[in-house]
C-alpha cells in the first residue's frame, strides 16, 4: 500500500487565551488519512478547526499533541514542504511583482535552477491562463487572476500535494469554474488535493472523500458518494418520454411495494444557467 499523502494521528490543538486561565480547543483528537491522488474536502462551519488543521499540516502551527505527516515525513520538518503547494484564503501576493516575477521568486525559494524556473513559469502561466498578464504587476490583477497566480505559485516545484483554503472565495462564477477545472486537471495529473471550502456544491463536484469538522471534532468522514446517497431511494431520469410511458411507470409503481416520492423536470444549476447566458456567444 502506498504512503498516504497526509496522515493525521490523534491531533489536538489547544490555544491559551492571553491574560486568562481559560483555553480554547481548536482541534480535538483528530485522526484522518488522505490517500495519494485523492481530492479530499475538509468541511465545517467557521471556527470548526479546519484552518488550524491545515496550518498544522503545513507546519505553520505546532500541535499540542498528536502527529501529522506528509508522504511519511513529519510535517513539522521543513523538508516535508518540498512536496506541498499551498494557496491560502484571500491571498495578497507582493503587488509590486509581476506574475512572472512572482513565480520566479517562489521558484527560487524552492531551490529550482534558473532554467527550470523559466520552463515551469511558462508552463504554469499557460495552464492558469495568465500568459498575457505575465508582465503585469499583481496590483492590477483581478481577484480571479490572483487566485490563479496563487495556484501557479503553489505548483511551481511540482508538489505531490496541494492544500487549498477557500480557493474560489470572492471569485465570480466563471472564475470559480475555471479554478474548479484546474483542480480537476491537477487530479488528473495524480496530484493530491486537500480542499477547504464553504461552497458545498463545488466540493460535491470535485471531492472523492470528505471530512466534516464541528467544534474541532471530526463528526463524519468517508467517500462522498456513500455519505450523501439516500439508501432506500432510486432516481431515474428520462429524456423525451411520452405521457403514455410515464403513465405506465406510475401504474407499475402503484402495483409494487415502492412509493413514488417525487416527479419533476430536472433543473440545471443556477451556476450553469449563469455561465450559459454570460459566456462567450456562439456565432
Amino acid at each position: 500500500m502506498s504512503t498516504p499523502a497526509i496522515s493525521i494521528q490523534n491531533l489536538t490543538k489547544v490555544y491559551p487565551i492571553p491574560f486568562k486561565r481559560e483555553k480554547v480547543t481548536a482541534v480535538q483528537d483528530l485522526s484522518l488519512t488522505v490517500e495519494a491522488g485523492q481530492v479530499y474536502g475538509l468541511l465545517g462551519p467557521n471556527g470548526s478547526g479546519k484552518s488550524t488543521t491545515m496550518k498544522i499540516v503545513l507546519g505553520l502551527v505546532t500541535p499540542t499533541s498528536g502527529r501529522t505527516e506528509i508522504f511519511g515525513r513529519d510535517s513539522n520538518t521543513v523538508e516535508s514542504r518540498e512536496d506541498v503547494g499551498f494557496l491560502p484564503e484571500n491571498p495578497y501576493f507582493y503587488k509590486y511583482l509581476t506574475g512572472a516575477e512572482t513565480l520566479d521568486f517562489y521558484g527560487k525559494l524552492c531551490g529550482l535552477s534558473r532554467a527550470k524556473i523559466r520552463d515551469r513559469s511558462k508552463e504554469l502561466l499557460k495552464l492558469v491562463g495568465l500568459e498575457n498578464a505575465a508582465d503585469r504587476r499583481l496590483g492590477g490583477y483581478s481577484k480571479g487572476m490572483l487566485q490563479r497566480i496563487g495556484l501557479a505559485q503553489a505548483m511551481i516545484q511540482e508538489p505531490r500535494l496541494l492544500v487549498l483554503d477557500e480557493p474560489t472565495a470572492g471569485v465570480d462564477p466563471a472564475g470559480s469554474r475555471e479554478i474548479r477545472d484546474l483542480i480537476l486537471d491537477f487530479k488528473q495529473r495524480g496530484i493530491t488535493v486537500l480542499l477547504c471550502s464553504h461552497l458545498l456544491e463545488q466540493v460535491q463536484e470535485i471531492c472523492d472523500r470528505v471530512g466534516i469538522l464541528d467544534h474541532g471534532v471530526l463528526i463524519r468522514e468517508g467517500v462522498l458518494g456513500d455519505l450523501i446517497s439516500i439508501e432506500n431511494q432510486t432516481e431515474i431520469i428520462l429524456e423525451n418520454a411520452p405521457p403514455e410511458l410515464l403513465a405506465q411507470i406510475r401504474e407499475m409503481i402503484g402495483k409494487s411495494s415502492g412509493r413514488l416520492v417525487a416527479e419533476h423536470r430536472p433543473q440545471k444549476t443556477l451556476e450553469r444557467y449563469f455561465l450559459d447566458v454570460t459566456g462567450p456567444k456562439q456565432s
Partner: peptide, 14 residues
C-alpha cells in the same frame, strides 16, 4: 496580514 508569509513558509524555507 496579507498571508504572504504563509505562502513563503509553506515552501521549504526555514
Amino acid at each position: 496580514e496579507d498571508r504572504t508569509l504563509y505562502t513563503i513558509l509553506a515552501k521549504p524555507v526555514p
